[in-house]
Write a protein that binds this DNA or RNA. Structure first.
Length: 1039
RNA sequence: GCGGGUGUGGUGAAAUUGGUAGACACGCUAGACUUAGGAUCUAGUGCUUCACGGCAUGGGGGUUCGAGUCCCUUCACCCGCACCA
């Protein structure tokens, strides 16, 4: 009986669905294990083989954990709000909810393309997801709770004394009794106010003040505005100065926007990384993004140029130990003090410099780092320790947005300051003992300080501490920690996102009651901004809140709303809102009374294993940690980190295929006698005639300037030209003209992608199949083939994408080889974290292995199902049966059990596949068909190849799914060797193998080895200097 | 510039702790079988040499009886951050 994988797989997928085999049981007595994949954005393009890689690994692990007796939560859902669906809606008018549904469930899009649907594609691979727990972030029953969490964030402030978020009511209480004098909060810069002030203020004034403290707050901030997308973007959505999606330019714009006070959590987000089992690189990216700098803020008083000013410049420095090395100061050109302190003589120069700096974009400023520019303000500051006057400059290497926008320049210890001082001829003081600073600054923190008063002779690290103490003692500053992390902009001027549960009375935001949530996204006529530049929701008529009826109501355009009716927020939430807490919703996906029930979150806790791409390092992964910590602070969840262990799967790259084309512009014809070049018109005429497509080796030869190939091609061109231009006879390219190639041999060939589905084994192009296409990419081209008449393509590894014709869908492979083969093969490909190119050829090896496994169970007549039921007799002590073959089979099985368990436990998903292959190869060689060997083998194989395992498991007479079988125990007794084959080395070089009893003593082994006749050859009559014997390992003889 | 990562046959890779480098596959070469197929089976396959042997884990150096693995140094590629004071 043949291995009918298609039938088997369909059968078991149906069985699992019907029996809800993978349903996780809340509050079960078994220990819990939570395995989570980063949920996908359902795009119309569907899945390619790269997408399921991580899902297969997590599925293997989830199934493995079930076999080990865990209650496993392994859910899947969709991050279904997002830009692509909205862009598509703008183009086609199709509601994003409709396209999203089609992308998930399958169907036909507006252009008539068949969309397979994520769910259908996933189902074919045999994942053990608990689909009853599916979530979609764009579903109102889901985003109701995203809105609810937003409300919590709005109604909270960050108390630095308790170091956690607290209800805003506790803050209001303090304001009522003491004003804000004793409040230690993470907030915007706020003036002090008293209880009287607070109580006197109007409701509106109080609300405006509270926005300075709320964790979700509204403020006028400089935001990254992307005109092409018509929305603002967070810092992590911008790469190299352009939008991550679409690559559009981004500019700075002052807008009233919602933000999240994530900076309040900077320290906890940083320190929390310590205990996470994440890759060092992801942790480092987050550390970098948070960008903690420890140092001091120091005030330098401004020396009044005419005696009247009393100002001071505050700087932040990480090197207070170098304060005696300060020889000037630099302010950012935008620094508010600049205009105040600039002397009349310097005014013109400074203003010119400010103007020049403001005209440069952020990007230009960054890219132009080699040019040292600046201007002297004419003002001086007083050095707080030496009393010296130091010049105050402005320069655009100082950023207004970081620290205080001003630096104390220490040219001997900072290269930029050194460059600046050198360029403008400013004094450079050396405050490092025995360090040469004539060629550049000494930036290491290991010098000993000199010429620095009370800091003399201290190593830098101690000097830092002492300097801070002294600075604080003199009241000129204090120790301070600075972060690079900025508050996260939370508004998007987009339609396809969560609406805010917010309406405005006189520009003051008010929240909608919990019981009236969700606020459902309204219908609009077009998914574009309004004429007057409001976000798309500005088009919705029914987008007003009636405080009396507690409902959204319609107000005609340009009409004043009736009393008690107010305009709702027109922005929507960013993509990361829904994905910041989805892992919690899986625990309790249908709960309409809570975002997650207490008992369920207490049972399931946080995610034990999270698998997904590394590209979310500063976005999703940081925000999810932030929200988790916040929800923990308010007592909603019992943990403050979402994902305990994470593995980032590598990208599967496409293996693009290329055809080669003669670059017709790259040769020219020259009249032999006259040396007259025929003009461009003639060149153009070549392109009217046949094009030439070259098989790989011919293209290569042409690039290598192989003479005979050049001649061959000239001949072909000549013939082809004449065929198409019979009137020219042979006087154009025949006797009188000769074809020459241009010098740059690389450009002789143009490469074009060809669909990998038409490329066979050994890069052979299937020309026959291509011809059947209505749009044959070879067209009428003349083909120059290999000697054997074949056309060979070249290959290149690139990102998998439709435009490169290198997309491999899992569906095709499941059809041809089966889901089990695909699963094993994707794992077999290499370490999960590594990037690797897709290669379909190798899949036959894995497929062959499953067929071989199938045959082990079909040793009956005509390959019918048959296994040997006679039990293996073991001795009372559990030692192996004396029969050699059985001993071998038992050893093979137990060796494999051990390896599979150890490998999966250390997340090495590729090596178990080889172990299975070895085991099946060995059992095949031993002709082993014993139930006692084959049954445990199925259990350990089930995580990788669940369908075939279920089928054979059932054939063995089991009536329950293999999913909850018990992972077999390793019996070490079977693994004990009576003999060991020693590799015998001479001077570290392995020369021969020698089989000796495993329990032989070192001395006896040495004796045996030296007595061996082969040893005599390598000893060459000499006595060995030393013999190293490592029992059960090796023998090394030193001659 | 800073931080992280990766370099092993024609290809994907293996080698948890220093102990036979290249397991397991793909591909390739022969052969068997066959109403030819992308099926199955057998043998071979790092490079080099007729051979004994020699050389091989990006390069160079070191520690060690022994190094892909540890240390130093250097090169290449990938990812992240980048006048961050």
């Amino acid at each position: 009986m043949q291995y009918q994988f298609n039938e088997i797989e369909k059968k078991w997928q149906k069985y699992w669905e019907k029996n809800k085999t993978f349903a996780a049981k809340d509050n079960d007595v078994k220990p819990k294990y939570y395995v989570l994949d980063m949920f996908p954005y359902p795009s119309g393009a569907g899945l390619h083989v790269g997408h399921p890689l991580g899902y297969i690994a997590s599925d293997v692990y989830a199934r493995f954990k079930r076999l080990q007796g865990y209650n496993v939560l392994h859910p899947m859902g969709y991050d279904s709000f997002g830009l692509p669906a909205e862009q598509y809606a703008i183009q086609t008018g199709q509601h994003p909810a409709v396209t999203t549904k089609v992308n998930i469930e399958g169907g036909v899009d507006k252009q008539g393309n068949v969309i397979p649907g994520y769910r259908n594609q996933l189902d074919k691979i045999g994942f053990s997801f608990d689909w009853d727990r599916e979530v979609r972030t764009s579903d109102p029953s889901y985003y109701k709770w995203t809105q609810w969490i937003f409300k919590q964030l709005f109604n909270s402030w960050y108390n630095k004394d308790t170091d956690k978020a607290e209800q805003i009511d506790t803050l209001i209480e303090q304001f009522k009794t003491n004003g804000n004098t004793n409040v230690n909060a993470e907030s915007a810069d706020v003036e002090h106010f008293s209880a009287e002030d607070w109580n006197r203020w109007s409701e509106e004034e109080q609300q405006k003040m509270l926005l300075n403290y709320r964790i979700a707050f509204l403020s006028d901030t400089w935001v990254n505005w992307c005109p092409a997308l018509g929305t603002v973007l967070a810092n992590d959505e911008i790469k190299d100065g352009v939008s991550e999606r679409g690559g559009h330019p981004v500019e700075q714009k002052l807008m009233r926007q919602w933000s999240m006070r994530i900076t309040a959590y900077a320290e906890r987000l940083l320190s929390g990384l310590e205990d996470l089992d994440w890759s060092e690189s992801i942790k480092d990216i987050q550390r970098n993004w948070i960008g903690k700098s420890v140092g001091a803020s120091v005030r330098f008083t401004i020396s009044p140029p005419s005696g009247e000013s009393e100002g001071a410049i505050e700087v932040f420095t990480t090197r207070p130990d170098t304060i005696f090395g300060v020889s000037f100061m630099v302010l950012a050109p935008e620094h508010p003090l600049v205009n105040e302190i600039t002397t009349p003589e310097q005014k013109a120069e400074v203003e010119a410099y400010q103007k020049a700096a403001s005209l440069k974009s952020e990007r230009d400023r960054q890219s132009d780092i080699k040019n040292i520019t600046g201007a002297f303000t004419g003002a001086f500051a007083i050095h707080p320790f030496t009393g010296d006057k130091v010049q105050i400059w402005i320069g655009d290497y100082v950023l207004a947005s970081y620290g205080t926008g001003a630096v104390m320049a220490v040219p001997c210890g900072d290269q930029r300051d050194w460059d600046f001082a050198t360029h403008f001829g400013i004094e450079i003081k050396n405050i490092f003992k025995d360090k040469d600073i004539s060629e550049g600054a000494y930036a290491e923190k290991d010098a000993v300080i000199a010429n620095s008063g009370f800091l003399n002779d201290l190593p830098a690290k101690e000097a830092i501490k002492k300097a801070v103490v002294e600075i604080e003692k003199r009241g000129i500053g204090k120790g301070k920690t600075q972060y690079r992390l900025r508050d996260a902009v939370f508004s998007r001027q987009r339609y396809w996102g969560e609406p805010f549960p917010v309406y405005y009375k006189n520009e003051v935001p008010y929240l909608i009651d919990d019981k009236d949530l969700p606020i459902i996204l309204p219908e609009i006529d077009q998914y574009l901004p309004t004429e007057d530049g409001k976000p798309p929701l500005g088009r919705a008529k029914e987008w007003f809140w009636d405080e009396h009826s507690k409902k959204t109501v319609a107000v005609e355009q340009n009409q004043k709303p009736p009393s008690g009716v107010w305009g709702l927020e027109l922005n929507t939430m960013p993509g990361w809102a829904g994905s910041s807490w989805y892992f919690l919703r899986y625990m309790d996906p249908t709960n309409d009374g809570e975002f997650v029930a207490k008992d369920k979150v207490n049972y399931w806790q946080n995610v034990d294993l999270y698998i997904g791409g590394a590209e979310h390092a500063t976005g999703h992964l940081l925000y999810a940690r932030f929200w988790t910590k916040f929800l923990h602070d308010l007592g909603h969840i019992p943990f403050d980190e979402p994902f305990k262990k994470m593995i980032n799967q590598g990208m599967i790259q496409g293996n693009s295929a290329y055809t080669h084309w003669l670059n017709l512009v790259m040769f020219k014809a020259i009249k032999k006698d006259l040396k007259f070049e025929i003009n461009d018109l003639n060149v153009a005429q070549y392109s009217f005639m046949s094009e030439f497509s070259l098989s790989k080796s011919i293209a290569e030869k042409l690039i290598a300037e192989d003479k005979s190939t050049e001649e061959l091609i000239k001949e072909k061109i000549d013939v082809a030209y004449k065929k198409h231009h019979p009137d020219f006879k042979d006087n154009v390219l025949g006797k009188d003209y000769e074809i020459y190639f241009k010098a740059n041999s690389q450009e002789r060939i143009i490469k074009k992608h060809v669909d990998i589905n038409y490329v066979e084994v050994n890069d052979l192009l299937n020309i026959e199949e291509l011809k059947k296409l209505s749009r044959n990419p070879l067209g009428k081209a003349e083909l120059l083939l290999e000697d054997n008449g074949k056309y060979i393509c070249s290959r290149e590894v690139e990102k998998m994408s439709k435009s490169k014709f290198n997309v491999q869908t899992p569906d095709e492979l499941v059809e041809k080889f089966g889901a089990d083969t695909l699963r094993c093969y994707e794992m077999f490909l290499g370490p999960l974290e590594q990037h690797k190119p897709w290669d379909t050829q190798g899949i036959t090896g894995v497929h062959g292995f499953l067929k071989k496994l199938w045959r082990l169970f079909h040793t009956g007549e005509n390959e019918s199902f048959y296994v040997d039921e006679t039990p293996i007799l073991a001795s009372a002590d559990g030692s192996p049966h004396p029969s050699g073959e059985l001993e071998g089979a038992l050893k093979s099985l137990h060796k494999t059990i051990k390896k599979i368990k150890e490998d999966i436990e250390r997340f090495s998903f590729n090596t178990p596949v080889s172990a299975f292959m070895i085991c099946v190869n060995e059992l095949t060689a031993l002709k082993c068909n014993k139930r006692e060997i084959l049954e445990p083998l199925l259990i350990i194989l089930a995580p990788y190849a669940p369908h075939i395992a279920e089928e054979l498991w059932a054939k063995l007479g089991n009536t329950e799914s293999i999913t909850y079988a018990v992972f077999p125990k390793v019996n070490e007794a079977y693994l004990v060797e009576s003999n060991h084959k020693y590799p015998v080395s001479f001077n570290g070089k392995m020369r021969f193998m020698l089989e000796l009893p495993a329990d032989m003593s070192k001395e006896a082994i040495e004796k045996e080895v030296l007595a061996n006749e082969q040893s005599q050859k390598y000893l060459e009559g000499k006595t060995p200097k030393k013999v190293i014997v490592i029992p059960q390992k090796i023998v090394n003889v030193v001659v």
